[in-house]
Design a protein around this nucleic acid. Structure first.
Lengths: 204, 204
DNA sequence: TGCAAGCTTGCAGAGCCTGCAAAAATTCTT
DNA sequence: AAGAATTTTTGCAGGCTCTGCAAGCTTGCA
């Protein structure tokens, strides 16, 4: 137990698990992009990834999860980063810094995200799940913000800021993945946060 | 065809439909509040509303819809109100005015919404669907805003404002339905919009 | 009253998802 | 390197969700 370097020596088993998961995600996205969500069965996705249908559900709780992904790991990292930001940094700036890391990783997987966004917009039934992951994160973020600004956990401010910044992030990511311009996601997020801090003035 | 007074004389048929729908919603919320989402079947909900299970799916596309409701009608009204607001009104104020009507109706159904929020928070699988309805509305709202401020439909500003105000509304509604204080939803929404317009300054 | 339209219902069936236990693969121990 | 321990994969049975279809009933209207 406890392999001495847990990150450097993943071992064959972990490697295979990553491969299988990636294969399932790739097969799911490709097939659904081709045929549409309800013309692709879990059986077909599993066959394309060369595993049994039962194994699919060992990796994903439901069919949609293979398409939208689970962002629990991201959530933990964002929370850790947020708590690490010095208290004197303004709330919006702290949040912007907390998501920097995740944003870079998303940027690194641009093609995957473009495909994912394409699939989601063409299959609106997936939209709920794509937004939902964020909501769970927002609740946790709200708690950290409450402590940071020194108000009660049920004060309206933390929940508002968490929800609003989550929405801003989503808007920026959507634009980044769908628009033709090849700007960095980080730049789009910066613009969105700047607009928030300025009170959302009309452009120009 | 085309009943002369469509609103004043609903007729027995429409009345029955509304009753059936309300009975299904009530039964679904009550049963799920008691037992939890996956310990209640559509068959049981239908039985409690005294209709067949097949009829349930004539009213709702899926089990969850009976719990979170469909807000398409609200969406249409919000869009109509928004386009009716004079162009010189600032964007945030226009949005606030556009949702006033819907907010009053939600306020009128406070108990229903409290139960619904309780069910959703205790069954997080429902959370996606609750937020999703808003997203569809937001896209339409973004289009109207783009026209209002005179930018291209794919400009980042309209999408950002639509997403952010949607999030603010959601935060206010959540607080209104869960918190103990009996303040008006309209007041909470006003506060949220004011905070948005001020750039989300830390309280105090 | 009689007809047309709309609503409800049962039925059959595809597909999603879960629990269980056996088989296979990987890792650990000796 | 052989065997034990652990993890992963798989098949199977089964319940539940949701859909299409056709028959039967209710409602609205002339």
């Amino acid at each position: 137990m406890t392999p001495s370097p847990p990150a450097s020596a993943p071992g064959r088993r972990d490697r295979k698990k990553r491969q299988t998961r990636a294969a399932l995600v790739e097969a799911a996205l490709r097939l659904v992009a081709e045929r549409g969500l309800d013309h692709v069965t879990v059986e077909e996705i599993s066959a394309a990834a060369d595993v049994s249908a039962r194994t699919f559900f060992n990796y994903f709780a439901c069919k949609d999860d293979a398409l939208v992904g689970d962002h629990d790991a991201d959530a933990d990292r964002i929370l850790a980063r947020l708590t690490a930001v010095p208290p004197e940094v303004p709330v919006l700036a702290a949040l912007r810094a907390a998501v920097a890391e995740v944003i870079e990783e998303v940027q690194a997987e641009r093609e995957l995200w473009c495909l994912r966004m394409d699939v989601v917009t063409r299959n609106p039934a997936l939209l709920p799940r794509l937004v939902a992951g964020n909501v769970e994160v927002e609740n946790a973020v709200a708690g950290v913000i409450a402590a940071r600004v020194g108000v009660a956990p049920d004060h309206p401010y933390p929940a508002l800021v968490a929800a609003v910044t989550g929405a801003a992030l989503r808007a920026a990511t959507t634009r980044w993945a769908t628009a033709g311009d090849n700007r960095n996601l980080a730049d789009l997020v910066d613009e969105a946060f700047a607009a928030l801090a300025a009170g959302l003035p009309a452009p120009r």
